[in-house]
Amino acid sequence: MTPLKGLILSGGKGTRLRPITHTSAKQLVPVANRPVLFYGIDAMAKAGIEEIGIIIAPETGEEIKEVAGDGSAFGVKITYILQDEPAGLAHAVLTAEPFLKDSPFVMYLGDNLLQGGIDDLVAAFRSNEPDALILLTPVPDPEHFGVAELDGDRVVALAEKPPEPKTNLALVGVYMFTPLIHDAARAIEPSARGELEITDAIQHLVDTDKRVEPHVVQGWWKDTGRLDDMLEANRLILDRFERRVDGELIDSQVEGRVVIEAGATLTRSTVRGPAIIGAGANLTDCYIGPYTAIGEDCVVEKAEVEHSILLTGSSVHDLDGRMESSLLGRNVHIRRSSGQPRAFRFMVGDNSDIGIL
């Protein structure tokens, strides 16, 4: 078989993660202190894919280029492909056709996380040689996803967010295609929301008697488009960590699977894993609970933080209660003032969400 290429979709506005995504691409929001996008690149590299195209949007493309680079850090070659407008996944495939040419390829949504990578998927695609192979997983709410109907080992129908799903098998954001998908994408019309849907293009393959095979995911899969999903993905990734303490501990305790990066300093603090503390972070008189990722150069002082993600440069000071299930953007500062009378004072951006418990 011709060598596989990879296609990662990193356009999209990330509206469900605002305000974080007002200033950063959603694919660069970190899970366990690594951008979500990097997990997809890693999965492709481990599956032996050497050439990867990344679809970028005009608004966030330069930032993604700067962070991911030319791919050498991952052992791959990255080509960036500009999609002028968010006109659907099938439109992204057509936009990438000059890069993909006649190669079969893996398409991976850049804000998705998949346990165990894609090695099994690639092996099944190579051995069975279908015209397309789609990843599926059972979900409790299939009406919110693309849904597949199967007949044995073949896909017979697809529906995008059907009000009355016929199965509970949702399409995971990873697909494998032969070049036939390009003609299928050209053959379809935009959907009601004005996009060329990949489900319609795959359905066209089915309708023209092409062989579309399912591959049911055995482990977990996460679309990290919402806060709850980000926190859950962070939890799942941290659960795989091994203990490593390279930073400085001063009268501090570290319990369980905790990573303390070199350059981090803990003073009179307790960290209970799974957790990660980034380089340059400074923790003083604080408690960091399980499933927390503290980014580089963060400061936590006289506060408790649990089941949360703090991005680079954030700080939390002097809180009476525990901060939990939270996502702080870069250089966000939360503190309690010593002034009287005691009150809450906020400066909050658009589409923020604050819960005071």
Rank of each mutant, 00 (worst) to 15 (best):
G48V: 12
K210E: 13
L171S: 00
T270R: 12
D223G: 06
D297I: 05
V348M: 07
L114C: 07
Y80P: 01
L9Y: 08
G53F: 07
V259S: 01
I55H: 02
V216Q: 06
G110E: 04
D200L: 06
G88L: 00
R240N: 09
V155A: 00
R18W: 14
E306W: 13
R322M: 10
V271Q: 01
H333E: 15
S127G: 05
D239K: 11
P274V: 02
G219K: 04
K166F: 09
K13H: 12
D70F: 06
G40K: 04
D228Q: 14
R235T: 10
A157F: 11
V122C: 02
I356F: 11
R268F: 07
K101H: 13
V155M: 07
T95R: 06
I49F: 05
L114M: 15
V254S: 00
E149D: 11
A123L: 10
R226F: 07
I237Q: 10
S338M: 12
V156F: 13
P165C: 04
E232N: 06
K166V: 05
I118R: 02
G6A: 01
M44D: 02
I237R: 12
I41H: 01
T199M: 13
R268S: 09
D131I: 00
L357E: 15
V139F: 02
G256T: 02
I277G: 01
F241E: 11
Q203E: 08
T21S: 07
A279L: 13
G53W: 05
A262P: 04
L196I: 05
A275W: 10
D228H: 14
K5Q: 05
A157L: 06
L7F: 03
R342G: 03
V122F: 08
R34G: 05
A57G: 08
A279Q: 15
K101G: 01
T208H: 06
L17F: 12
I309M: 05
G263L: 09
A92E: 14
P190F: 00
G88S: 01
P58E: 11
E85N: 11
V174F: 04
G6M: 02
A68P: 01
T178I: 08
A73F: 15
R186D: 00
L238Q: 06
F344C: 02
R342E: 15
L109N: 13
I118P: 00
I354M: 01
D239A: 08
Y80F: 11
T2R: 12
A170T: 03
R154L: 15
Q218N: 11
A170P: 02
H317V: 04
G61E: 10
A148M: 09
P35F: 09
M176K: 03
G69A: 07
G110D: 10
L319K: 05
I20C: 09
I118Q: 00
R330D: 11
A96R: 04
A90M: 08
D320F: 12
D84S: 14
D102M: 11
K26S: 13
T2H: 13
R193C: 04
G289E: 10
G256C: 00
N282H: 15
Y287R: 14
L196K: 09
I55F: 04
I334D: 00
H204E: 08
K13I: 14
A43P: 08
N351T: 01
G75Y: 14
I20K: 11
P190W: 08
H317R: 14
K166S: 07
V259L: 02
D297V: 03
A187G: 11
E97S: 06
E143R: 15
F74S: 01
